[in-house]
Amino acid sequence: MAFPALTFVAVFSLYPAMDSFLLSLYSDFPGPERSFVGFGHYAELLQDPVAHQAFIVTLGFVLLSTTLELLMGTGIALVVHERFKGRGWVRAAVLIPWAIPTVVASQMWRFLLNDQYGAINAILFGDRVDAYVPWLADPWMAFGAIILADVWKTSSFAGLLVLAGLQVIPEETYDAARVDGATAWQRFRHITLPLLKPALLTALLFRTIDAFRVFDLVFVMTQGGPGDATQVIQFYGYKTLFTEGRVGYGTTISVTVFVAMAILSLFYVRTVGSKLLQRESA
């Protein structure tokens, strides 16, 4: 029954990935005839300072954006989990950012952050135009800006998963605590949070995978600048592979990203995934 699905995945994901891996073992120069270099490109990657910097930028991005997204997402979920009038509209409103194509959302943020006619400057400084800040010109603020855009765009995705987790916590669990006189914070800390753990982990898993592969945002907003301050590893891989035509080295970068992600995710799969499958035998 799983055959069609596995065929799809094999033809359009696994085979291409294997093919790419093989490409990463062949030289880029000289000429179109490629020679086998084994893991030469991987050794090169270990000594490439630009790649190291890109890895650090990516890690920083992943850590900060996923943390913020989980916090915001939990906040959103707690809010829309409550019963109030017009809840449907609020739920729809918080899902809107997620439904806007990333390329469009990134253009929007570039527009909002413009140093001359950007809305953010207008909100902060009004008519005092000489105080307007060129947000994307400063290496740190540019880095902050892509995180802001990502958090805005995808917090609701995390929120959705957390909300689903909240909904399966039975109301009775809280009643006992209320009788014991626990405060709202204590109830959240000692009942909600532990029960939310699986939902948070699932959200964390899918968000981490996505954040590691961030590309569109950087491509549209900063092109990796200024001074490579926002150059994430996927963007570096794209430049090497597609712009410079260094197929071997470019795929090496991407394959390495994949391996790094796989190792990181192993932890999640062991905690979330195995639990999931074990329960069936119980």
Partner: peptide, 25 residues
Amino acid sequence: TWVLGGLLCVAMFPPIVIAGPVWQI
């Protein structure tokens, strides 16, 4: 477990890795 884990792995492939070969197919 391996199939599910494997599927998760596939979800992790950076699009850039598979873009070239997919194009050729």
